[in-house]
């Protein structure tokens, strides 16, 4: 118990230089009646303090499972992690004991879920649920916890926080509930926040409010942020860099401006092309043909090959690794990678 407290303190004293979070070759599988579903098949990404990484992907791409593995909230079994490292401040969390991980969860890495109504306990007041963070992690008294809850609600700009602290989740609107989720994630001033589709359930006008708030708080506390989403619009608005996932692998990484201007993977290109654009009105939308793969039967070779306009025999036989993307003269493009044998051709497609 005491050692854990000490390690927290030493962390605050000596600033850590490397990436906050470093995921290396992570694999996650689910054992089901019909076989082993390979949800995550070798994911690498890292986040620094103050940086926003957007993980973009469709349902079943493994983006949420990766996040749950980082948080340590996967149900094991049926899930298992056969391989990989999740380094937080240089230390592999997969090798830590239960108690040590529990200390990190909430205190150093916090998570914001999509559906605030089902993530909050309906029979406890929001003040109690917010205060619980302080009572469990810092041994605060009931009174202190309540005061801190009010303070937090103020900080996420819930009007009349003092009067509403004893209200229950159902008495708040969707946007306000998501603010409470954000407040809860911020409570212990974590270094890293993982936001899993934080605005998907909200209306656009409220979505704008919530994303602005999140970005503002991130800058204020210099936190790392992993934003998991399928919304290309939200990503363009807030991300610094992007990892595009498909069938449990990262198929492309790039800084945000580069990805939208010059995608280097046919899947990314297809996603961007299928956004309705003004000058295409009345025409057919570009559509990626086919369906996302079944994780029990991921296609051989590149998982995207049955849907890819560029697929060759090689794509059906070999799995492409994440190649570094460069300019024609070989000049490296920082932070860019593409898991496509034909990234060069894709990059020049227009």
């Amino acid at each position: 118990m005491t050692t854990a407290v000490d390690s927290t303190r030493s962390k605050r004293d000596a600033p850590y230089e490397g990436p906050l979070l470093d995921v290396r070759d992570l694999h996650v599988e689910f054992v089901t009646r019909d076989g082993v579903a390979k949800a995550v098949n070798g994911v690498d990404y890292s986040v620094r303090a103050g940086e926003t990484l957007a993980v973009l992907g469709e349902s079943g791409s493994g983006k949420s499972v990766t996040a749950q593995a980082i948080m340590g909230i996967l149900d094991m079994p049926p899930a298992r992690i056969p391989r990989g490292e999740i380094r937080f401040r240089g230390r592999d969390m997969l090798k830590m004991g239960k108690e040590e991980r529990r200390k990190i969860r909430g205190q150093e890495i916090a998570m914001i879920f999509q559906d605030a109504l089902s993530s909050l306990n309906p029979v406890l007041s929001v003040g109690f649920q917010l205060g619980e963070m302080f009572r469990a992690h810092q041994g605060a008294s009931r009174k202190e916890a309540r005061d801190k809850a009010v303070e937090l609600m103020d900080r996420v700009r819930i009007p009349a926080a003092k009067q509403r602290v004893n209200d229950y989740p159902h008495q708040f609107s969707g946007g306000m509930r998501q603010r409470i989720m954000i407040a809860m994630a911020l409570a212990l001033e974590p270094d890293l926040i993982i936001a899993d589709e934080p605005t998907t359930a909200l209306d656009v006008t409220v979505q704008a409010q919530v994303m602005d708030l999140l970005a503002e708080l991130q800058a204020e506390y210099n936190m790392g942020l992993i934003l998991i989403t399928h919304d290309l619009g939200v990503v363009a608005d807030v991300a610094d860099k992007i990892a595009v996932m498909y069938a449990g692998r990262i198929v492309e990484t790039a800084p945000v401006h580069e990805l939208y201007a010059r995608p280097a993977h046919p899947y990314t290109r297809g996603l961007l092309d299928s956004i309705p654009r003004l000058d295409q009105k009345g025409q057919e939308l570009y559509a990626i043909k086919g369906l996302p793969p079944n994780l029990l039967r991921i296609p051989k070779g590149c998982a995207f090959n049955p849907r890819c306009p560029r697929a060759q025999d090689r794509c059906r036989a070999e799995v492409p690794e994440l190649y570094p993307v460069t300019e024609d003269d070989g000049a490296p493009l920082a932070g860019r990678g593409s898991a496509c044998f034909f990234w060069k051709e894709t990059l020049h497609d227009r």
Partner: peptide, 27 residues
């Protein structure tokens, strides 16, 4: 106008030039 301005545009170059009306409060 507010609704249209709140829609995230899938174009990061528009990020700085965006002129978003953020509505206060809920419906």
């Amino acid at each position: 106008q507010a609704l249209l301005s709140a829609v995230p545009v899938p174009d990061p170059t528009a990020r700085e030039s965006r002129d978003r009306i953020v509505l206060t409060g809920d419906v």
